[in-house]
Design a protein around this nucleic acid. Structure first.
Lengths: 146, 146
DNA sequence: ATTTATGCAAAACTTTTGCATGGGA
DNA sequence: TCCCATGCAAAAGTTTTGCATAAAT
């Protein structure tokens, strides 16, 4: 069973068909999805799952920091990223909207320092860089020199 | 004139009443706003500015990485943060939805390393931590132990 | 003088709600 | 058995479009 499903269960939530299907869809998509994509793929997988459950589950997963909302450049519907281990990092190419993942970075140290200094408790983090990928690095940014 | 307005102009866009009002509202709000807040405050400041212009301008500012969309925990409408200097960092309290800003962090070094390693060009970044603030640190996370 | 941006208002979607039913624990 | 979660369908909002007009360069 997915560790994310186990966290749901550990938090006291029931393991339902809708929830496991939705989480499966997000994982199968590689951890980057749009609400519209989830809606579509869930419907294809199991048409008896209602749209409302998809939104309710996305909300629940967000509250648990299992996923986190982001705005992918290319889409109108909100995007979400999986946060295995409570964190995620990526680069968004502002030209072609490609997303480039990269591994960690030493933010644990910064998190610990912030916890100490600000008296907070941190559960996770999301780091996004914006720029141009290797294929687009010579192209102008969209919107520049209109 | 705001450096952000200057960037608009430098990129070839016209400096209009709508654009400067909208940017002013975002800056006056301290850099954290919701689309609904912008709509409301712009209407209060100058009722002749149409809603469509607000959304068009939010899109434009996002493409230029002058602002960046985020999801504030408390609201249903999408949020935006100002990115002075191309970057922004904050902590979101998952209990009370308070946002705690903090100053930089040494991410320039990481950005430079990523540019080298992945052959990308980076324009900015957004770093969000999720957790509990000093007032809420002893409270359970919402959604835990449902 | 040109060209871009605006305002208006309707249309298009996405997301949310309420309630009875079904499914986990 | 009990309570949570679901599905359905309608309602509520937010965001997007199209086009003629106004404004900025």
């Amino acid at each position: 069973m997915s560790p994310h499903l186990e966290r749901l269960k550990a938090a006291g939530y029931k393991l339902t068909k809708a929830r496991s299907t939705i989480l499966h869809v997000i994982e199968a998509a590689g951890g980057h999805v749009t609400s519209a994509e989830v809606l579509e793929k869930v419907a294809a997988l199991n048409p008896s799952i209602g749209r409302a459950s998809v939104f309710r589950t996305l909300d629940l997963l967000t509250r648990l920091v299992i996923i986190r909302p982001t705005y992918p450049g290319g889409s109108t519907t909100p995007g979400y990223v999986l946060m295995p281990g409570g964190h995620h990092h990526h680069i968004i190419c502002m030209v072609c909207n490609r997303i480039i993942e990269f591994d960690d970075c030493g933010l644990e140290g910064m998190a610990a320092a912030l916890e100490e200094r600000l008296h907070v408790r941190l559960e996770g983090h999301l780091l996004e860089f914006y720029g141009r990928c290797d294929r687009c690095r010579e192209l102008p940014l969209p919107g520049s020199e209109a």
